[in-house]
Design a protein around this nucleic acid. Structure first.
Lengths: 259, 259
DNA sequence: CTTTGAAAAGGGTCTTATCTTTGGACCGCT
DNA sequence: AGCGGTCCAAAGATAAGACCCTTTTCAAAG
C-alpha cells in the first residue's frame, strides 16, 4: 500500500471518528430484557410468562423471534418450556445442573484428561469437607449416612454403588452450605462418574475401602471436626486419584486411542 | 376402591409397568447428533457446517427446526454463527467462557453472596498457585509479570487496576496447565470482578498491598516453590476476603436493599 | 490504483398454516 | 361411582415460503 510519506495511517478524508457500533439481534434484545428481569427476581420462580402469541402482540416481534428468545432462555436454564394446554414458559432459577452441563461440555470438548479432573477434585473437596464439618445441619448428616448405606452393602450392584458414591459426594457438597462450591463439586462428581462407569477396577476391595473412608469422613463431619474431615478427605480422594491414574497410564499404552 | 384384604397399595389391575417415555423434539435430535459429532472431534475446530438451507434439504427438517438446533448449539458454545456471505455456523470447542457464564448466572440467579464466592476462591486458588508453581512455563511467568505491571504502577486507573488484577489471577490459573481448574478460577475471578467493580475501598493502600502480594507469589511460582506459593496465595485471598466481608457486613446494615 | 456499485451468498425476520400435545369437560355405559 | 370414549380448546412444535439485512466479492468506472 503506497502511502504519502510521513503518514503511517490510512488517509482519513474526514476528521469524524466513530467506534464500531454493535447492532444486536432482535431476539437477543428480548433475551436480555427477560433475563435481567428474571435474575432481578421480578418474577418469582414458577411464574408463567405470557404465551408466545401473546408475547408477539406485546413485543410486536414475530413469533420466530419470540420463540428463539425463549429457546435461548431455556438452554440457559432460566425458563422451562412445556407443550400442550396450560403449557408455556415457566420461570426457573438456574441451578447446579447448568454449571454441571457446561463443565461436562468443557471436559468432553477439550479432551480434558480424567487425571486433570481428579486433580481438580483433590483441590476442592478437602476444603469442601472442612466447610461441611463447620456448617452441616442434622439433615445433612442423615443424607450422608443414607447415601453411604448402599456402599456399605456388599450386595448392591455396581451401578448402585457408583450412584451412591455420587450421592455421598453431593451430600458432602450440600453440607457446605455454599451453593457455589457445591455446584462445582457436583459438576466434578458427575464428570468423574461418567468417566468411571465403565471402569472395571472397582472390585470388592475398592468398595470396602471406599465405605470405610466415607464412614470416617462422615463421622468427622458429624462431630464438626473440620481438620480431621479435611485430612481424611484429602487422603480419600488422593488415593482414588492415584489408583485411577495408575490404571489410566497402563491403558493409555495398551489402547492408543481409536478416534 | 374395594381391595382384597392384606393389600395396602392401590389396586394395579394389571401387572405391566411402563416408565414414562420421553419423545424428543425434532430439533433436539438434530442438536444431539451434531453435538456428539462435534465433541467426538469429527469436525475440526473452525469447520463450517452446511448452510441452513442445505441442512434443510439434507435433514428434511424445516428451516425453523434447523435454525433452532443451531441456535442451541451456539448458546452451548459449540458453534459460532456469523451472518453475511461466507457466514454460517462454524464449529467451536467449548471454552472457559461458557463455564464462566453459567457460573455467573448461578450466582446472580441464586443470589449467592459475595462472601460465598470469596470462600470458594479461598478453597481453590491456593491449590492453583501450588499447581502453577509445579507446572508453569517461562511464558506463564512472563504473563504473570506483565499482568502485574499496571498493578505496580500507581498511576493506572481503577479500571486498569481491576482488569490487571483479573488478568493476573487468570495467568496463575493458566499456569496450572489444568484447563478445568483454570476454567473454575476464571469464572470466579470474573464473578468477583463484576461484584467489586463499584467498590470504593480499593485505595492506594490496598493497591500497594496487592502489588506486593502478587509480586511475592509470582516469585514463588517462578522459583517453583509450590509450598510458598500456596501459603502466600492463601494469605492473599484470605485477607482480601476478610476485607470485603467486613465492608459487606457494614453496608448490608446501612443499605437494606432497594429491591 | 482507488472508488464505487452491483451481485451473490448467507443468516435474520416475518407471515401463515398445520400438526401435536395436553388438560379438561361432557357423555354415556356399566 | 367408575370408567372409557369423544370432543374441544389452548399452547407449543413444525413447516413452507417470502422477503430483509449483512457481508463478501469482484468488476467497472474514474
Amino acid at each position: 500500500m503506497t502511502e504519502s510519506p510521513g503518514k503511517s495511517r490510512a488517509t482519513p478524508r474526514s476528521a469524524v471518528q466513530l467506534s464500531p457500533i454493535d447492532v444486536p439481534k432482535a431476539s437477543d434484545v428480548l433475551v436480555h430484557d427477560l433475563r435481567e428481569r428474571i435474575l432481578r427476581g421480578e418474577f418469582p420462580e414458577g411464574t408463567a410468562l405470557p404465551p408466545e402469541r401473546e408475547l408477539v402482540t406485546q413485543t410486536r416481534m414475530s413469533r420466530t423471534t419470540v420463540r428463539e428468545a425463549l429457546r435461548i432462555l431455556e438452554v440457559q436454564g432460566l425458563v422451562r418450556i412445556r407443550a400442550g394446554r396450560a403449557g408455556g414458559a415457566f420461570v426457573q432459577r438456574p441451578g447446579r445442573d447448568s454449571v454441571a452441563s457446561s463443565v461436562s461440555l468443557l471436559i468432553r470438548g477439550r479432551r480434558i484428561r480424567l487425571a486433570a479432573v481428579l486433580e481438580t477434585r483433590e483441590a476442592i473437596e478437602p476444603v469442601c469437607a472442612q466447610l461441611a464439618a463447620a456448617n452441616r445441619t442434622d439433615d445433612d448428616i442423615k443424607a450422608l449416612k443414607a447415601a453411604n448405606a448402599p456402599i456399605e452393602d456388599p450386595n448392591s450392584s455396581l451401578a448402585e454403588f457408583l450412584q451412591a458414591n455420587v450421592d455421598w459426594h453431593v451430600a458432602v457438597a450440600t453440607a457446605t452450605r455454599n451453593e457455589l462450591i457445591a455446584a462445582f463439586m457436583i459438576a466434578l462428581s458427575q464428570a468423574i462418574y461418567s468417566s468411571t462407569e465403565n471402569e472395571s477396577f472397582i472390585d470388592a476391595e475398592v468398595r470396602r475401602i471406599t465405605a470405610r473412608a466415607h464412614r470416617s469422613i462422615t463421622e468427622a463431619i458429624a462431630k464438626g471436626d473440620a481438620v480431621a474431615a479435611a485430612r481424611r478427605m484429602t487422603r480419600h480422594v488422593h488415593s482414588y486419584a492415584a489408583a485411577v491414574t495408575e490404571i489410566e497410564s497402563r491403558t493409555e499404552i495398551a489402547v492408543p486411542d481409536a478416534g
